[in-house]
Design a protein around this nucleic acid. Structure first.
Lengths: 217, 217
DNA sequence: TTCGTGAGTGAACATGTGTGCACCGTAACA
DNA sequence: TGTTACGGTGCACACATGTTCACTCACGAA
């Protein structure tokens, strides 16, 4: 029987698969860190290995290629965003406040996961086609989810399906643009960060006002 | 006296600076072409040289570094967009049609300058910091220009300066997002291209409807 | 206690890279 | 008609890169 208490060093409990998972996470973290400086396309396998404390060939024990790493990073980077939207749906805020609440939640999530959002923004149109496609797919999921959410709103009940999706896309675009704006503004610039939050609040409000006056054709 | 008719080969009139300008343009074109496949950060000086038909060191006769090339590409890529907006201002369309006219003009300009828009979209958050900054600056110029344009609209006369700029930013975001959408949709997919145009038309209309109901705080 | 599996090693390879340097040929000037 | 300035060449260098292969050695099952 294996002795799970025979630790190789202090502190970390180490079964074999735990260790593997841990270095996998280390690879993801290192790649995210390096990508935020130079972009994923300009990232080399050897750089990742060096950052992790690897020999280059050990990389292949975890990923077949850099492209696979990129896809894993997309997956990982969208997790906080998916959670944010899931929570928002689970706990439906009062109608009037939902706008400014959303803006502030977005702000908080972006700040707490800065490097992941940098990755998404940077690689959305970056050099690796497979990564681009994966990100586009994730964003499209948001559009369809939000479309079904919007269909429940009273004001939009008589809209055509096309129009509802158009509105959903407008919101998702706004979310993406805002996340990009937040990410390209240094987090110390508190004043400008707040300006972005009030901007997106007003922009959403402007759009919602538009809802009332919209007449489907 | 130099003999300008003594052409080195057929066809092209060749003064020295004309020739230099021509190869400079060739470099820009080659770089744009290659960037659309792999991103500027992953583009090497030698690749550019190979594509142009150069020896690598000749590159330095035209640009100090790849970074300088990147900045020149930004400058060049924004030209059609600047012209589009200049023309739009010069020839102010009738109020009601200005929206769908703008959408179609944007569509036309993006199609005619596809590779340039790919470059902007890709490098807006790409790996080269100086290039990112240059693109952000150009887009900020659009926001301030559009802000002064919007201030002339009757409906917005009583808005605060902040609100007008917020609205301008919403429009510029929409323009950028739409250009990105157009660019990531194959130009043969006529149906989807048209969907994008009608989407942006409706989205702008939705926002303008919001203008009417907006009450500054 | 034995032993296979598999994460990580280390050397080697062919190839790509940025840049320095001496060099050429000719357009543009005196 | 020289003479020069300069766009482009060719070679060299010291790197960095992806991938191969045979290897170690400890976990974890028997």
């Amino acid at each position: 029987m294996p002795n799970r208490r025979d630790l190789s060093h202090v502190g970390v409990a180490t079964t074999r698969q735990e260790q593997k998972e841990r270095t996998r996470q280390a690879i993801l973290a290192a790649a995210l860190e390096l990508t935020s400086e130079q972009g994923f396309a300009g990232l080399s396998l050897r750089q990742v290995a060096r950052e992790v404390g690897f020999v280059p060939t050990a990389f292949y024990r975890h990923f077949d290629s850099m492209e696979q790493l990129g896809l894993a990073l997309v997956e990982q980077s969208f997790v906080p965003l998916r959670h944010m939207l899931r929570d928002a749906r689970r706990d439906p805020a009062t109608y009037d406040d939902v706008i400014s609440a959303s803006a502030q939640v977005l702000h908080r999530v972006v700040l707490a996961n800065r490097s992941r959002f940098v990755f998404i923004a940077r690689e959305r149109f970056g050099g690796v086609a497979a990564v681009r496609a994966a990100i586009r797919h994730e964003l499209q999921l948001f559009v369809t989810d939000l479309t079904t959410d919007l269909e429940r709103f009273a004001q939009l009940q008589h809209w055509s399906a096309d129009d509802v999706q158009m509105a959903a896309r407008l919101f998702v675009n706004l979310m993406v643009s805002t996340a990009e704006r937040l990410v390209e503004t240094p987090s110390e610039a508190v004043r400008e960060q707040e300006q972005i939050v009030t901007d997106v609040t007003r922009q959403m409000r402007l759009i919602v006002i538009g809802f009332a006056g919209w007449r489907p054709r």
